[in-house]
Simulated assay, not measured.
Amino acid sequence: MDVPEILEAAGLLVPEKTATENDVTVREVWEYLVADEWETALGLLEEFGDAGPLPLTFWETLGDAAEQLRMERSAAWCHWRCTEIRNGMIRADLTLRPAGEGRRTTPIDGAGVLRPMWDIGHRTATGERSVNIAALWLEEVPFLEPGGRCRVRLVPLVPSSWRQLEPGRRITMHEDRTVAGTAIVLEVRPPAAPSEG
């Protein structure tokens, strides 16, 4: 399929009465598609993901369109959202340690590249700390400097290990044995049931 067909297919997966935070409706997206403003239509369709849960096929379809349009960050975001549906997602408020206090001296890339370890409270049979891995996406900025703070989305590598997390819980990020940052859990979404994906 070409880009307009892909975007039309994605638009059909959004309930007609759904509106984005900025009150954009699916009808307005169709207007951009008719005018061949595909990048704008794609960007607006991405915003519908925050208006309510959309099926896995929606994000897969948008990812295909973004790849054809060579919109790398949008394609990465759509693929990220697919992974959130499959593995669940944790939103948190992350604060990195300052460069002088931690190992990290360079900014973190915000597009889901980093997969740090997280201390979420698990212990080994001998009582030692056990860490879990989750990929990291920055919500508000493309990069996060040491000492910086922003909202993040985490996708667990092993979703069942993260089930006990609840909003308000403090967790720590590690890139080695030292603490790289601390986060307060804001939201926990379990993986979608097979029929929802």
Rank of each mutant, 00 (worst) to 15 (best):
E60H: 06
L62D: 08
E67A: 13
L69W: 08
L69P: 10
M71N: 09
R73P: 00
W77Y: 13
W77F: 13
W77R: 14
H79E: 12
H79Y: 08
R81I: 00
R81A: 11
C82I: 04
T83N: 07
T83W: 02
E84V: 04
I85L: 14
N87Y: 07
M89W: 01
M89V: 11
I90D: 03
A92S: 03
A92K: 01
D93P: 00
D93R: 12
D93G: 00
L94V: 05
R97C: 03
R104V: 10
T105F: 03
P107C: 07
I108Y: 05
D109L: 14
G112S: 05
M117Q: 15
M117R: 14
W118Q: 10
W118C: 08
D119R: 07
H122P: 02
T124K: 07
T126A: 15
G127F: 08
G127N: 10
E128W: 07
A134D: 10
A134E: 08
E139V: 11
P146H: 02
P146M: 04
R149G: 05
R149W: 01
R151N: 11
V152D: 03
V152K: 02
V155D: 01
V158Y: 09
P159I: 04
S160T: 14
S160G: 10
W162I: 10
W162T: 09
R163M: 12
Q164L: 13
L165P: 10
G168S: 06
G168R: 02
G168K: 03
H174V: 10
T178F: 04
V179G: 03
G181E: 04
V185S: 03
L186Y: 01
E187T: 10
E187L: 12
V188C: 09
R189I: 12
P190W: 05
S195V: 11
